[in-house]
């Protein structure tokens, strides 16, 4: 008699198990570290007068910064050109340093 009582539950359980679409879920967590980024240091060269840093000063700065493990230094050469009437009247090289803190 007890088995007869259980029978409807067993049948319904089978029906329920087959009626539901089986689903498996997996969750993955990703982490992104975004750093401060951008040009933060553009050394100015002294020619003869005025404030700024000489090439030697800049070299010393870079040497000191490069010793630090928490910084990335990228160097980019730029050409500054002044054009007048389609003629280059002045050109000067400059260097853009991009320093990224880690």
């Amino acid at each position: 008699m007890k088995k007869l009582v259980l029978l409807p539950f067993l049948v319904f359980g089978q029906f329920f198990a087959n009626a539901q679409k089986p689903v498996k879920n997996i969750q993955q967590t990703i982490t992104m570290n975004l750093l401060a980024v951008g040009p933060v240091h553009l050394p100015k060269l002294i020619t003869n007068t005025g404030k700024g840093k000489t090439k030697k000063d800049t070299s010393l700065d870079l040497a000191a910064l490069s010793q630090r493990n928490n910084m990335i230094i990228e160097k980019q050469a730029l050409d500054t050109v002044i054009v007048k009437n389609d003629t280059i009247i002045h050109s000067e090289g400059a260097v853009l340093y991009t320093i990224t803190s880690l």
Binding site: P22, V23, K24, Q27, Q28, T29, I30, N33, L34, V37
Partner: peptide, 14 residues
């Protein structure tokens, strides 16, 4: 700048 976290959920269905 900062630390960003996101959960990605992969769901397999019949």
């Amino acid at each position: 700048p900062g630390i960003y976290t996101l959960s990605i959920v992969y769901t397999l269905t019949a």
